[in-house]
């Protein structure tokens, strides 16, 4: 049996905004195995972003349990959380979140700064990651000179530079045209094929269908949790090509 990477039981999240309580998650339960490619879908306000933030240790939860890599998330110290974010997770954001006035190489090197990797390996490691997303020719460009698709590919290189087992992608194609969107999704799919677990947040069906499994959220609850048939995926892939 494959290892469970993520185990979530009755997860709840309530935001307190002054006097009013907003419930973003009202008790969701699911497991994610190593190597899975899961898309989390749902309309805005369904709680999908909140879920991703909690899974990525970027936000805390109100109730329920969350085990990451076999350990209760509430038992992780601040130091360990920073380490998990650095070594075990990669993040891809809708808004890219690259450092302005900084080169592609420097941006991709950023996680290495906090990783304890020996400094003489930084450039080589970062260059390899940039090569994987096909941007070697842009390595010394400042990020402001890149197109949206290229920016997101830099963000992907940054997410995988520490070879984390799981990569979180929060609407990675949301700011892109469909052509660069598919390019980005193909890279993400390739990463999955290489063994990375992918957790993708999206509201676009065509992006979600790169995944093997789609979890649909509505009003803070899981509406459906389905495996995507191989046949549909193949058809989709050939359609995109």
């Amino acid at each position: 049996m494959e290892n469970l990477l993520i185990e979530v039981k009755n997860l709840e999240k309530t935001y307190l905004d002054g006097e009013t309580q907003t419930r973003a998650l009202s008790g969701v339960s699911f497991n994610i195995k190593e190597g899975e490619f899961v898309a989390v879908m749902g309309p805005s306000g369904s709680g999908k972003s909140t879920l991703l933030h909690i899974l990525g240790f970027l936000d805390d939860y109100t109730k329920g349990t969350y085990y990451f890599d076999g350990k209760d998330a509430s038992k992780y110290s601040q130091q360990e959380i920073a380490r998990v974010r650095n070594k075990k997770m990669g993040f891809i954001f809708q808004a890219f979140n690259l450092l302005p006035r900084t080169t592609v190489l420097e941006n991709v090197k950023l996680p290495l700064l906090y990783s304890g990797t020996k400094e003489f390996l930084w450039n080589k490691t970062a260059e390899e990651a940039i090569g994987q997303v096909g941007l070697s020719h842009r390595i010394n460009h400042e990020t402001s000179q890149l197109s949206g698709g290229e920016k997101q590919r830099v963000a992907i290189a940054r997410a995988l530079v520490n070879e984390p087992p799981v990569i979180f992608a929060d609407e990675p194609t949301g700011n892109l045209d469909s052509k660069s969107g598919s390019q980005v999704m193909e890279i993400i799919e390739k990463l999955n094929n290489e063994g990375h677990t992918i957790i993708l947040i999206t509201h676009e069906t065509y992006t979600a269908e790169y995944a093997q499994r789609i979890i649909k959220l509505k009003d803070g609850l899981i509406e459906s949790d389905d495996q995507v048939t191989q046949r549909r995926r193949n058809a989709l892939n050939s359609f995109n090509k």
């Binding site: 990525g56 974010r85 979140n97 940054r158």
Partner: peptide
């Protein structure tokens, strides 16, 4: 603020 958030998401500790 965004840069700080990003650095933290990429593994920077409060101390960093």
């Amino acid at each position: 603020t965004r840069e700080i958030g990003l650095r933290k998401a990429l593994g920077a500790t409060d101390k960093n």
